[in-house]
Design a protein around this nucleic acid. Sequence first.
DNA 1: CATGAATGAGGATTCATTCAT
DNA 2: GATGAATGAATCCTCATTCAT
Lengths: 203, 203, 203, 203
Amino acid sequence: MNAAEKRHPDQERTQIRRKQVLDAAACCFGRSGFHGASMAEISKAAGMSAGHIYNYFDNKDAIIAAFVQQNMERVSALMVDLALKDDPLQSLVDQIGEHVRESMDPHLWVLPLEIFSESARNPKIAALLHDADRRTRAQFRAVLKSARIKRGLAVDDGLLDGRLETIIAMYQGLHVRALHNPALDEAAVVAGFRLAFTALLLH
Amino acid sequence: MNAAEKRHPDQERTQIRRKQVLDAAACCFGRSGFHGASMAEISKAAGMSAGHIYNYFDNKDAIIAAFVQQNMERVSALMVDLALKDDPLQSLVDQIGEHVRESMDPHLWVLPLEIFSESARNPKIAALLHDADRRTRAQFRAVLKSARIKRGLAVDDGLLDGRLETIIAMYQGLHVRALHNPALDEAAVVAGFRLAFTALLLH
Amino acid sequence: MNAAEKRHPDQERTQIRRKQVLDAAACCFGRSGFHGASMAEISKAAGMSAGHIYNYFDNKDAIIAAFVQQNMERVSALMVDLALKDDPLQSLVDQIGEHVRESMDPHLWVLPLEIFSESARNPKIAALLHDADRRTRAQFRAVLKSARIKRGLAVDDGLLDGRLETIIAMYQGLHVRALHNPALDEAAVVAGFRLAFTALLLH
Amino acid sequence: MNAAEKRHPDQERTQIRRKQVLDAAACCFGRSGFHGASMAEISKAAGMSAGHIYNYFDNKDAIIAAFVQQNMERVSALMVDLALKDDPLQSLVDQIGEHVRESMDPHLWVLPLEIFSESARNPKIAALLHDADRRTRAQFRAVLKSARIKRGLAVDDGLLDGRLETIIAMYQGLHVRALHNPALDEAAVVAGFRLAFTALLLH
DNA sequence: CATGAATGAGGATTCATTCAT
DNA sequence: GATGAATGAATCCTCATTCAT
């Protein structure tokens, strides 16, 4: 046990407990949705009594919000990775294959959709989403801009936003596609995406 | 009152009442979500008692399903329109502006997202969605194919699916973008979409 | 159409309609019980709208009561038949076989049980039952008495009631037995009843 | 508080609560019938919230079933008592007086009738009833057989069933008699039963 | 006479939340 | 800290009953 942990052992414990709940919530939310998952279900998955959860979260909405927050941070980290690449533009094109494959696991995209539809109704969630999206966009924008300069491509500020919004839309739309079309042909999608990405990123 | 109405006044009335409920449901579902909207809320919006709704729908799920079905048919009609154009490919590119503008009214896209997340958990809704998507894809595919032939473009069957899935993903993703980024710049998106569509449709 | 019918054609019609409802009720009550059978179910079986039933019966309870009344009258008629026999005592013993066989059709005895348990809760039904039972007992008692005199058996007034109550209890209990023991052996029951009846009636 | 209670305080509490509910149910079912008694009524009688009852019983049917089960066990215990008597046959005849007196308290026999009529419609209850009846019959049969051997009476296997079914029918029928004829003369019934029992048991 | 659309009260059940232990 | 017993409001749904047509 290191010093930092020793200094605030209870805060440490609190963080562990909160994570326990959020992990359990991830499982339950994925299985039953935000509103379908009962506190009882979550508490059982968290290995903790239902009442005790209220020591760490004010109410169920707070769990949902914390859970969404956590997810946002995960996505933000992916952007940081991209920024560190040598040639991010080429990376994006090259990685279409694996990104598409990931996006097509429907199991993985139930939760984002749950979040999206919750945000339409819950202003707190919407604020979280807007904020995270703004940060992610800024990161993505910076990456695109510097990469275009490095490659000697035009840096058309207005169009830059269009390029990145389109790319993000494609990936977010792909999650929806995976749900709607269970027989979605991965190779075909990759080919289609490559056509579009080439136009969007390399010209 | 015309002849058709006179002949089946009760069936007519039933249809009117069902529509009344579905319209009310659209409103309530958009405001509160499928599960957040209570039958009492819907019945009040529909101007009829809660109990009476059950004369037109077996249960709440049946309302959701009918509502989804109705939405599907609206989308299907759009495809039929497209097929009737002289040059559907050019039409798609030309109409990017208005389609994007429509897609960006967040009010309009709350419900589809609600449907998507419901489908992840409700097999009946998922089946409706899959079926509708299959039909829509087939229509879209036929349109693209004949339009490409007419234009003398390569009819690469495998890639054709990729092209259309990418386009659908872009529009479905755009709904998500509109929710995530309330300041979304319409002109920029249109420009981005035009780049991608040109690559996907006209080459 | 005879005179009596012509004089009160509407009362005639009313009686027919009431009977229609009661017959339908018999079917529904047997299938679903008094409280399980809905007015909608009954009205469908009666081939008449639910609302219209209220022109013939004040409410559902009135249907139940009329139905019970009808059943009571049927039982009473059986007693009259018995009184007309040459040697009612011997008849009762001889008919054990067919009476037991009848009593063992569980389908037939659902309704009496329904009536019994309703009477425990519904004073109006209880009054009907008490009244019918009193009449039936009196008839039965008179039959037994005169038959015993004719046969030269002792006419022990106090014991006479015991004899007849016991016999009635046996048949009413047999209905319960038929429900409890679906494998009830008819021949065995007949033999058992014959032992008891011989002691009760012929000594 | 003894050791057993201390070891499983929660299981103990659960049993107490279940009993609380069943006792309340007995009261409400008797007053209003199985379907007439609402969960609210039962919960008030049990001194606990309606929602809390669902921690002890899956649903209302489970309460009915547990209640029926409880009643069955009471009857089964009576059979065990009988088996322990020196001369069960003579005991049965001697105890006619008290058994009849018990059977004539109408308040006590409302619930069995409720159970009977429920069993006609509820397969789960019917199964419970059939099973309990089978066990009770087997016990009774063994008692009768050994007692007849001890007394040197013929052990006519087929007729044995007839004898016992007739006796059970008499007592079950007596409950119905008590409801139908509030003025039922106890002494007369005892005399009638004695005639029949003598023929059925002692010859 | 006859319909069946419409009502609204009431029922079983669930679940977020609290609190005594 | 930790439990889970307990609450009670809210939800979906049913059904006897009424009434305009």
